[in-house]
């Protein structure tokens, strides 16, 4: 955050929003390339389902979505105050 930065401090490469955008773009490109790669080689697989084009990227997306939703649910159920367990005589 710019307002927290000390005035005499040097500027870092990641401070520039454009550079962050470049990194994100690089990730998009890497994802795209890895997806396209599926068309160009012969897979050695254990299960037939692995032969489907894009199965691993899709699996990754679905897995992370499940994780994210599961974690949100977990939070609504089990989140408590930080000193929930702290007994009165603690610290």
């Amino acid at each position: 955050m710019a307002d927290q930065k000390k005035p005499d401090e040097k500027s870092y490469w990641l401070d520039d929003r454009n550079n962050v955008k470049k990194l994100v773009l690089a990730l998009y490109v890497a994802c795209g390339l890895s997806f396209v790669a599926d068309f160009f080689y012969h897979k050695h697989v254990h299960y037939d389902v692995e032969n489907w084009i894009g199965i691993y990227p899709i699996f990754g997306l679905v897995a992370c979505a499940v994780l994210f939703l599961g974690a949100k649910l977990l939070r609504t159920l089990f989140m408590r105050d930080e000193d929930y367990y702290q007994e009165a005589d603690d610290d």
Binding site: S34, H44, Y56
Partner: peptide, 25 residues
């Protein structure tokens, strides 16, 4: 380090990273 294994595993990781980036953004 077989072609299949490196590419499939990279796909899995990169698309997971994609989800993280999307959620944070």
């Amino acid at each position: 380090y077989t072609t299949s294994h490196v590419i499939t595993h990279l796909q899995l990781l990169l698309f997971s990273a994609l989800v993280f980036t999307y959620l944070v953004k």
